[in-house]
Simulated assay, not measured.
Amino acid sequence: MAATTAGDAMAAAPTNPVTQKMAAGGVALGLGVRMSRSAEIARIARATGHDFLFIDLQHSLFGLETVGHIAQAALALGIARWRGCARCGTPTSRRCWTTG
Rank of each mutant, 00 (worst) to 15 (best):
L29N: 03
G84N: 02
M10H: 06
W97S: 14
R94T: 02
T15D: 13
M1R: 08
W97V: 15
C96D: 11
G68N: 00
I79Y: 06
C88D: 08
D56I: 07
A74K: 01
G26N: 04
Q72Y: 04
L77A: 01
S60P: 04
H69W: 07
S60F: 07
L61D: 14
L57D: 05
A45H: 05
V27S: 12
F54A: 14
T15P: 12
A3S: 09
T19Q: 10
S38W: 00
T4P: 08
P91C: 04
A12M: 09
I70Q: 11
R34K: 15
L75S: 13
G25Q: 02
R94W: 00
A23Y: 01
A13G: 03
L75I: 04
G32Q: 11
T90S: 14
T15L: 15
M22S: 06
L75M: 11
M10P: 03
Q20N: 11
T98S: 15
L75E: 14
A42S: 07
T90L: 14
G78L: 09
A24K: 13
F54V: 15
V33R: 04
T48S: 13
A2K: 13
G100H: 00
G68E: 00
A3F: 06
R83E: 11
T5Y: 05
L75P: 05
P17Y: 00
A2I: 13
G84P: 00
R34S: 14
G30V: 06
M10C: 05
A3Q: 09
T5I: 04
E40R: 09
A2V: 14
H59P: 12
A28G: 08
A9G: 00
Q72H: 11
A80E: 04
A42T: 04
C85Y: 01
C85V: 15
Q20C: 11
A86V: 10
T99L: 15
A74G: 06
P91V: 01
S93Y: 02
R37T: 04
F54C: 14
T90D: 08
A2T: 10
D56E: 09
G100N: 04
V18M: 11
T4C: 12
S36Y: 05
A9W: 02
A28E: 07
A13F: 04
S60R: 00
S93I: 03
L53C: 09
G84M: 12
L53R: 01
A42H: 00
A74M: 02
A13C: 08
A73S: 07
H59G: 10
L77I: 01
G84I: 07
T90V: 06
P17Q: 01
G89I: 03
T90Y: 05
G84E: 02
G78S: 04
M22Q: 11
A13Q: 07
D51H: 13
A74W: 06
M35Q: 08
S38N: 10
G7L: 15
S93Q: 00
R46G: 10
S38A: 07
